[in-house]
């Protein structure tokens, strides 16, 4: 990946972070920690990897993205708005009465959302079903991308699916675990320890790798590697920091679901806005260098 693409993806990830903070702020609160920890993955998927058409969200020949940690809908909505699935202004209607952007994803409310989720563990099976259907339909070179939370891996259904997907040799299913080390009540190690998730998936018959979940280049490379492993499903365990990328939340405990004040929204505009401006400056510099 060239440095320009890296910077573009970083900029996109920062834009996603800012827009999702502002959308959650507009309704006063949100699942900030898990939204921000997943932003770099979402930036790589919507910025580079996934095949989709904002003008035709239901096009059959597309990749599917299932956010099984469905409470983090705002991170997808920010990406979808920035990519033109719907106007950016809609983001401020998150969770408002009559909204088409419920914080837990609903495929019938929001253009670009491929599956309704919200009951943890279930998106795993739904994604496996989609992948099975894609194979039966002969959709070549199309993938189902499944985004799991680490706390979500407490659910037995995730491991039922893990057995099933391996049995069905679902090499068109690429799962991610957002290993941000915290769940609602605290650190995962203190509540229901997950051990070595990468090893567990490998033992279940998956190709499994663990990488820095905030390194867009590493995420991209891991996806390329996953696609070369035929006959097995793949999982990319993303070592992340809950609340990443915003000084108010990054690395702090108790940021699963928090209130966001107007002052904090303004602070986010300043902090992340400055980061975006700096990345844009670098990108412009690159262009000049190129000339």
């Amino acid at each position: 990946m060239n440095q320009r693409t890296v910077m573009e993806l970083k900029r996109f990830a920062t834009q996603i972070r800012l827009e999702s903070i502002l959308s959650m702020g507009a309704c006063g609160s949100g699942h900030v920690g898990g939204v921000l920890s997943a932003a770099d993955l979402v930036a790589v998927l919507y910025g580079l990897e996934a095949c989709y058409d904002p003008k035709d969200p239901h096009k059959e020949d597309r990749d599917r993205i299932v956010l099984s940690k469905g409470h983090c809908g705002p991170v997808l909505y920010a990406a979808l708005a920035l990519k033109g699935f719907f106007p950016k202004e809609l983001l401020s209607t998150l969770n408002q009465n009559g909204t088409t952007l419920p914080s837990h994803c609903n495929m019938h409310d929001t253009p670009g959302i491929d599956m309704s989720t919200g009951s943890l563990g279930q998106g795993a099976s739904l994604a496996a079903g989609i992948a099975l259907g894609m194979r039966m339909k002969g959709l070549q070179d199309r993938y189902t991308y499944l985004i799991l939370g680490d706390g979500e891996c407490d659910e037995g259904q995730v491991w039922e699916m893990a057995l099933f997907a391996a049995q069905q040799k679902q090499d068109n299913l690429i799962a991610f675990v957002d290993l941000n080390h915290q769940q609602l009540d605290g650190y995962t190690d203190d509540i229901c320890g997950l051990g070595d998730l990468r090893q567990k998936f490998q033992d279940f018959g998956w190709w499994a790798v663990q990488i820095d979940g905030h390194d867009v280049e590493a995420i991209h490379q891991a996806i390329q590697d996953a696609k070369t492993h035929k006959g097995v499903p793949s999982v990319i365990v993303l070592d992340t920091v809950k609340g990443k990328g915003w000084s108010v939340t990054e690395g702090k405990p108790g940021v699963h679901h928090i209130p966001i004040s107007k002052e904090q929204m303004e602070q986010a505009r300043q902090e992340l806005g400055a980061q975006i401006a700096a990345l844009e400056e670098q990108l412009e510099g690159e262009e000049l260098d190129g000339i």
Partner: peptide, 25 residues
């Protein structure tokens, strides 16, 4: 090719069925 024995995992089976339905099955 149109019958799947999921093993003893009813919850996953129903979820997989939901995904298949989303694909038009």
């Amino acid at each position: 090719g149109r019958a799947f024995n999921c093993g003893i995992q009813e919850s996953n089976m129903v979820g997989v069925a939901g995904g298949l339905s989303a694909m038009g099955y």
